[in-house]
Amino acid sequence: MPDIKTMLPFLIPLIVAELALLGFTLWHILTHKTYKRGNRTLWLIVAIVGMEFIGPILYFILGKEDS
């Protein structure tokens, strides 16, 4: 593995993007009462546990109610 320093320029933006997406997802979950499936607790857990992009993406595909 190339040492961590050469990879830092890639890692930092990735982390920022991840956190931005997580924040937006949490905001979306908390400001909506009903979901296509599941409930608020479920989606909060999914979003936080799978925060490396997969959780929020799952939420937007499966959980977000069409407005």
Binding site: F10, A17, L21, F24
Partner: peptide, 23 residues
């Protein structure tokens, strides 16, 4: 609807992958 944010992040990651893979 978050479309802008999601698209932005996806394209950002795609853009990031090119030099990262090369590296």
């Amino acid at each position: 609807t978050g479309r802008l944010l999601i698209l932005g992040i996806i394209f950002f990651i795609f853009g990031l992958m090119n030099p990262a893979i090369a590296k």
